[in-house]
Computed example of a mutant assay.
Amino acid sequence: MGVARDERRLLSDLLLQVGPDAPTLCAPWRGRDLAAHLVLRERRPDAAAGILLGPLAGHTRKVQDGYAAKPWDELVELVRTGPPAPFRLVDEAVNAVEYFVHHEDVRRARPDWEPRSPDPVRDQVLWKRLPVTAKMIYRKSPVGVVLRRPDGESVVARHGANPVVLTGQVQELLMHVFGRSASRVEYDGSDEAVRLVKALDRGV
């Protein structure tokens, strides 16, 4: 049980529904590219290193293209099956946020998307993991950044003067932090501070 398992199942079902050429928020990736990325990340650690390390990017691209060339049903089944042992032992810790974000990448690339209803269990898991990514993303912000839920609970992503407060549901804050434009958050701060925060490169 867990968020990673649930999001993996939901994403797999959605991928089969929308097909391999469906757009995603990770443009220019299509559904096939995103699925291949997830399979590579879980099954080929030798190639996954190239996701972050430029010198290995060519190897990563070659392996990912190989997965992307598989029959669609077979590729989605690899996504659905998840990581092999022993990586399943850390599935929830490693993949809860990854699968939530990529599920939303497919959902929100559709013109009629709407946010999912809040889920206390899911949102608590995502909220616990949000500070690590948020502090990394906003470490270069010239002003302070605070992420706040509608209930008032907040996380300081960047200490600093003239802070900007971003308010939204947990899922919206998470998608915003990961640089997705399809997120619904409200900015509160001076016009200049808000401009500086919006101008930050948040691509993850």
Rank of each mutant, 00 (worst) to 15 (best):
M1A: 10
M1S: 10
R5D: 13
R5E: 14
D6K: 14
R9W: 12
D13E: 15
D13C: 10
P20L: 05
P20I: 06
D21P: 04
R30L: 10
R30S: 04
R32H: 05
R32D: 03
A36V: 02
H37K: 07
H37D: 04
L40C: 07
L40T: 01
R43E: 10
D46A: 15
A48M: 15
G54N: 14
P55A: 11
H59P: 14
R61I: 12
Q64F: 14
D65C: 12
Y67P: 01
A69G: 12
W72M: 09
W72V: 04
E74C: 09
L78S: 06
T81N: 13
P83G: 00
P84H: 03
A85C: 11
L89S: 11
L89N: 11
E92G: 08
A93E: 15
N95G: 07
V97D: 02
E98R: 08
Y99H: 13
Y99S: 09
E104I: 09
D105N: 11
P111Y: 12
P111S: 11
E114V: 12
E114G: 09
P120Q: 10
V121P: 06
R122G: 04
Q124K: 14
T133K: 13
T133W: 13
R139C: 03
R139P: 05
R139N: 04
S141H: 02
V143Y: 06
V146E: 01
V146I: 03
L147Y: 02
R149Y: 02
P150L: 06
D151A: 08
V155G: 01
V155D: 00
A161I: 07
A161L: 15
N162M: 13
P163R: 00
L166H: 01
L166V: 04
G168C: 08
G168W: 02
Q169D: 12
V170D: 01
Q171P: 12
L173M: 04
M175K: 02
A182I: 07
S183Y: 08
E186G: 12
D188A: 14
E192V: 14
L196T: 05
V197M: 02
K198N: 06
K198G: 01
A199D: 07
A199L: 06
D201E: 11
V204R: 11
